[in-house]
């Protein structure tokens, strides 16, 4: 089943944040695509929109959404869907993605359990239980989104800081089944695998990451995310804050993923405590070097 790939097939990108807008436009680097958070460009006009227009002239664009909450049991409101569709029409992205999480729900009243402010957005990516009910929900939502935006969606695995009750299947089984039923593909975030294994006090984090990767049918993965995060504070979980260089264990996981999936578009994310444009793009260059090394060996 393994894809036979050549190193020239692989696309390497970086996440673009406000501090790097000017650098991305005036100091182009060897980057194949730029990924932006879709919601940062939901405004009708203004400077951000103009920047995206300019960036799209120089780089292929990947739209990474955080609003949809594809596992939301109460469904996804029309407004963010419409805005995402408009943005897709404007920027003609290479990839469009969101997360296997829920974001939309209703608040319970403390006293009588009545709903208020319906729907409310979590302002974060919240974990879902992995079972037949949530699979049906997520399949239905993904199909609805894909129908609305008239293209295939990539769905990212989450870093979760609590474990919702009611799971009857593993995350990787859930995501595999989701991709097969909804005809979407997986955006595999390797740091999220590391964070989850770390927060579960795994004795063999890389072994867990490798085991997860090996269970995914290679053709289902459409993008890989690489990132680093701050160490866990005492008494708190490790938070995937995208504030650090990609750590060695994630690079090792990337090597395993490349061997299994072949040349999958790969993105380096860095969202907080941003480094210089050079440091960020050097991380992308490192990803490319590793990919070329692994994939050329694979072909040979």
């Amino acid at each position: 089943m393994k894809k036979q790939s050549t190193s020239s097939d692989i696309l390497i990108g970086v996440g673009l944040r406000h501090n790097h807008y000017e650098d991305a436009l005036t100091r182009p680097k060897a980057i194949d695509f730029i990924e932006v958070h879709a919601e940062n460009f939901f405004a009708e006009g203004g400077a951000a929109k103009a920047v995206l227009d300019q960036v799209a002239k120089q780089y292929a664009i990947s739209l990474h959404a955080t609003t949809l909450g594809l596992g939301s049991a109460r469904g996804i409101p029309k407004q963010p869907l419409q805005k995402l569709r408009q943005l897709i029409e404007q920027s003609q992205p290479l990839l469009v993605s969101d997360h296997a999480c829920f974001t939309w729900s209703s608040l319970q009243q403390d006293s009588n359990n009545e709903e208020r402010f319906s729907p409310v957005h979590a302002g974060d990516l919240l974990p879902i239980a992995f079972n037949a009910e949530t699979l049906d929900i997520t399949v239905e939502n993904v199909e609805s989104v894909q129908q609305h935006i008239a293209r295939q969606l990539l769905v990212e695995n989450l870093s979760a800081y609590i474990t919702p009750e009611g799971s009857t299947m593993s995350e990787v089984s859930f995501l595999t089944e989701l991709c097969l039923r909804a005809n979407c593909r997986l955006l595999l975030d390797i740091n999220n695998l590391v964070v989850n294994a770390s927060n579960a006090n795994s004795a063999d984090i890389l072994g867990d990451v490798s085991g997860y990767i090996q269970q995914i049918p290679p053709q289902l993965v459409g993008e890989i995310h690489l990132a680093g995060c701050s160490p866990a504070q005492p008494g708190a979980p490790m938070i995937d804050d995208h504030s650090q260089p990609v750590p060695d264990i994630v690079w090792e996981g990337y090597r395993i993923a490349l061997k299994h999936f072949g040349a999958v578009p790969t993105l380096v994310e860095w969202d907080t405590a941003l480094p210089s444009w050079e440091v960020l793009t050097d991380e992308a260059a490192k990803a490319r070097a590793i990919a070329e090394e692994v994939l050329s060996r694979d072909v040979a």
Binding site: E39, F42, T67, Q79, P80, W104, L107, G123
Partner: peptide, 8 residues
């Protein structure tokens, strides 16, 4: 609470 999904 946040109801639009977009903090902006």
């Amino acid at each position: 609470p946040l109801t639009a999904g977009d903090w902006g």
